[in-house]
């Protein structure tokens, strides 16, 4: 269950940021190609910290560069 939650949440947030639908946000797409600027990514990581309940660095989106990789890492921390 947990796995799906974080992934869903990320997809949802990114879709909202970009003003598109969840279907258009691929979980294997590099964040760099998603056209989110650095302020949006840092803000997302801040929000993610409270969602995931673990310490998350604002550089997380460069360390794990797709939704799938990031969600897998977060789930492995729990």
């Amino acid at each position: 269950m947990e796995k799906i939650d974080i992934k869903d949440w990320l997809q949802n947030q990114i879709a909202q940021e970009l003003g598109t639908t969840i279907e258009e946000v691929s979980c294997d797409e590099d964040f760099e190609n998603l056209k989110l600027d650095s302020l949006a990514l840092v803000s997302l990581s801040y929000e993610l910290e409270s969602q995931a309940n673990i310490e998350i660095s604002p550089t997380i989106f460069t360390e794990f560069n797709t939704i799938n990789k990031l969600a897998a890492w977060i789930n492995a921390q729990k």
Binding site: L39, V42, S43, S45, Y46, E47, P58, T59
Partner: peptide, 11 residues
């Protein structure tokens, strides 16, 4: 903090 780097919009 307004001058820092890696500042989220919440801050």
């Amino acid at each position: 903090r307004s001058q820092d780097v890696y500042v989220p919009r919440q801050v």
